[in-house]
Design a protein around this nucleic acid. Structure first.
Lengths: 123, 123
DNA sequence: ACTATTGTATTATCTACTTAATACACCAAT
DNA sequence: ATTGGTGTATTAAGTAGATAATACAATAGT
């Protein structure tokens, strides 16, 4: 897991985003055990408290489970994971359309620019 | 100008974004004078120092000009404005494609979801 | 000349985020 | 039972963003 942080957002929030992404994109195996809070903190180069704070949030979302003295585990609820993934996709696109609209672009223009950039994509 | 701020980003950064958007989307008339720093701060419900900090950044970008004792003005460089607007659109879409990719969506799926949400758009 | 309004600068304080160091509670493995 | 590795909690200190109050510099308008 390669950790990277920017300075335009609290680190704990970025950890939440990144771990969530790892889970819903299938880069984590559902049901697997995470590294310990301490080890993840070391790996990410942040304080254990900060890691703890982020993971607690993900537990509230239902994406992580805690086994008191054994560690934290990824949920094995595949439905939940897929639902969150689909929601995120819809949200991303809705955000794009909102952004383009706020720039003053109309439906037709958006379609054009989108298609153009899609074509420039490999595969 | 209706000011709204979230708590997931510094306020001065959000002011930069919002004012820039007003300019490049044509909601400000190029060459027009802004309200005074103090008045804009009051209007936005922030401290004058915070507003000052944001406007200084926009001046560095070339979108604002300062007339020492008369106030700050929107640039009248229409080319610059249009260039920034186009850049932003490209950036937004690139970001979307990156986001969708990180969720594990392929080109075809992205196209499908995008089209679906475009159709749900009025006009 | 004077005044009011402009941008700008300075200093202090407050809050949220982060780090740091430490301690505690729990339990599987030995 | 003891040990070692879990998660969790607490307290203190550092840093950046934001607020607050104030002062200064420049000039347009009178």
């Amino acid at each position: 897991m390669g950790w990277k942080f920017s300075n335009d957002k609290p680190i704990f929030a970025q950890i939440i985003d990144q771990v969530e992404l790892m889970i819903i994109s299938g880069q984590y195996v559902l049901g697997d055990r995470l590294l310990s809070v301490r080890d993840m903190a070391t790996e990410a180069g942040v304080n254990p408290n900060t890691m703890q704070k982020a993971l607690t949030e993900l537990e509230k979302k239902g994406l992580l489970l805690t086994n008191r003295t054994n560690g934290k585990f990824i949920t094995d609820d595949q439905e939940l994971v897929q639902q969150i993934r689909a929601e995120k996709a819809v949200k991303y696109i809705a955000q794009l359309l909102k952004n383009m609209h706020s720039l003053g672009y109309g439906k037709k223009e958006i379609q054009e620019i989108f298609n153009k950039q899609m074509e420039e994509l490999g595969a």
